[in-house]
């Protein structure tokens, strides 16, 4: 945005020659008949603020249209009656039938799919924040031999494309492990939420470690020392003092992880058989609306809109927290 903002202090000596030039041009060619574009350009030269404002609006509108239009179009598709699906309008729907928003819950238990995804993303976020906090504390606040090497190792694991892990993980999760039998009926992790949140937590962990490490390293040593003298352990000091003071960082890492896991496609679509009772995530639910002979685009669109809601609500809530955290820090530091 900053590029389109009008710069505050336009140097005065620069404005003067421009004005002079225009005046000069006016004098040399007094009866010049300008075209529309030429006249517009001349106005922009004499008044650069207008140009900046114009670019700002163009950029903003472009941004809003590219972001929001797909949503609008999803809505258009969702309310298009089933018979008219072959001729979906671009701006206005071909007919209006909001029943799709109810059908998605009656033809399939779509709420169960959303719940599965929501639960998996929540567990993954909690796990990532917990492990990431411990790792972030160690990397951010302790000095020890091999710290940089280990940090590099964490970074390297995030370089691998997730697909590289898929085959071995899929084999592993399909193996029956006798120890797990009392916990999971089949004894294998396939068709359980663990099969999705374990690999995804591991994949998104390095990013959170880096975010949390940066925040935790900035908390003064004195505060941790004070907490420890007052009666906490190191871990107690981490969760009672360091984490609350790093709230913006924790919120950022948490929201990023939640959204990534909730939206994830690859593992989510392959680690279960797609049945809602087997912890298939939201994504599988949306794909289930395409049958053998027919693709119910209106139901898919309605499901997509419903699926976005939890994340949208979370981001709105968390964003407020992030912003308030940042401003309290700014005012109080």
């Amino acid at each position: 945005m900053s590029a389109t903002d009008p710069p505050g202090g336009e140097p005065a000596d620069e404005a003067d020659p421009t004005a002079e030039m225009v005046e000069q041009a006016g004098l040399d060619e007094p009866d010049l008949d300008r075209g529309v574009i030429e006249a517009w350009a001349a106005k922009m030269i004499t008044n650069p603020d207008r140009a900046y404002r114009a670019t700002f609006y163009v950029a903003t509108i472009f941004f809003l249209v590219t972001t929001l239009f797909p949503f609008y179009w999803l809505f258009v598709v969702a309310v298009t009656p089933r018979n008219n699906l072959s001729e979906v309008g671009v701006v206005l729907p071909a007919g209006f039938n909001p029943a799709a928003f109810i059908e998605i819950f009656t033809t399939l238990p779509f709420h169960r799919y959303v719940f599965n995804s929501f639960l998996i993303a929540t567990i993954a976020t909690v796990a990532v924040l917990l492990v990431g906090s411990l790792a972030g504390y160690v990397f951010g606040r302790l000095r020890f031999r091999g710290r940089n090497a280990m940090l590099l190792l964490v970074l390297v694991t995030s370089f691998f494309p997730p697909a590289a892990f898929f085959i071995p993980l899929n084999r592993l999760f399909n193996t029956n492990i006798d120890v797990l039998r009392p916990l999971i009926s089949a004894g294998s992790l396939y068709n359980t939420p663990y099969a999705i949140f374990i690999p995804l937590s591991a994949i998104f962990l390095p990013l959170s470690i880096f975010i949390l490490m940066t925040f935790y390293s900035q908390i003064p040593d004195g505060l941790e020392d004070a907490a420890r003298v007052e009666g906490t352990t190191r871990i107690g000091a981490l969760f009672r003092v360091i984490v609350p003071l790093s709230a913006p960082g924790v919120a950022t890492a948490g929201v990023l992880t939640f959204i990534s896991v909730y939206n994830e496609y690859f593992f989510s679509s392959l680690m279960t058989d797609g049945r809602p009772g087997n912890w298939a995530p939201m994504l599988e639910g949306i794909l289930r609306f395409q049958g053998e002979f027919e693709v119910l685009y209106n139901l898919m669109a309605a499901a997509s809109i419903i699926a976005v809601l939890p994340v949208a609500i979370l981001v709105v809530v968390a964003q407020e927290k992030i912003v308030s955290g940042l401003t309290t820090g700014a005012v109080k530091e």
């Binding site: 003064p220 004195g222 505060l223 020392d225 004070a226 907490a227 420890r228 003298v229 007052e230 009666g231 906490t232 352990t233 003092v241 609350p244 003071l245 109080k332």
Partner: peptide
Amino acid sequence: PPKNRGISMVFQNIALFPH
């Protein structure tokens, strides 16, 4: 550990918990 030593401490940078 510090918490079991029966001591308390006042720090140079005061170190009150800001939150």
